[in-house]
């Protein structure tokens, strides 16, 4: 086994292969924000306590502050920037606008990424289930009822 303080990684981010040299300490979150200028993913706590940094790692929602970039070598990552083509909105994004599911907007990319995953996971059988499975994303402006309404609307779009 080779141990390195710096290493080269390749990640497929929003459909593009990105090869980078990283410090072993660099998290996926800092890689996205500071090295790739993908700043839509937010840093709210850097300890997995708020969900603002939620991205999809190999199709699953995770806190990117808790993933080493080195560890994500070879992975597929989707961030808020990769959810829809430029100028277009994903149905979840549209639902967030339609249902006023944000205020300051800082937690919103994480909420949207969580919602997209949530719908894929299918944990949307009741309001209570949605609320529980959306509890990993704090919103201090407290738009929780509107977020639930947006989730429910996005499910209807998907089903309809």
């Amino acid at each position: 086994m080779e141990f390195r303080q710096h290493l080269t990684v390749v990640l497929r981010i929003n459909g593009l292969d990105r090869q980078m040299r990283v410090d072993a300490r660099t998290t996926l979150l800092d890689l996205l924000r500071e090295h790739l200028a993908l700043t839509g993913t937010k840093k709210g706590c850097n300890f997995g306590e708020c969900g603002a940094c939620t991205v999809h790692l190999n199709g699953r929602r995770v806190n990117s502050c808790l993933v080493l970039a080195a560890s994500a070598d070879g992975a597929e990552v989707t961030t808020i920037e990769g959810l829809a083509a430029a100028g277009k909105l994903h149905p979840v994004q549209q639902a967030f606008i339609d249902h006023d599911a944000f205020q300051c907007g800082f937690c919103t990319p994480g909420q949207v990424m969580s919602t997209v995953a949530l719908i894929r996971e299918g944990h949307t059988r009741s309001e209570a289930e949605i609320r529980e499975w959306m509890s990993g994303n704090l919103c201090r402006c407290s738009s929780y009822p509107q977020i639930v309404a947006a989730v429910e609307a996005a499910i209807r779009v998907k089903e309809g």
């Binding site: 086994m1 390195r4 303080q5 072993a24 080195a70 070598d73």
Partner: peptide, 19 residues
């Protein structure tokens, strides 16, 4: 974080040997 060296285990034996 302080600096550390990162290694990737290719198999259990590898992990145990270095761990």
């Amino acid at each position: 974080m302080d600096s550390f060296a990162y290694g990737r285990a290719s198999g259990i034996e590898d992990a145990l040997a270095e761990g």
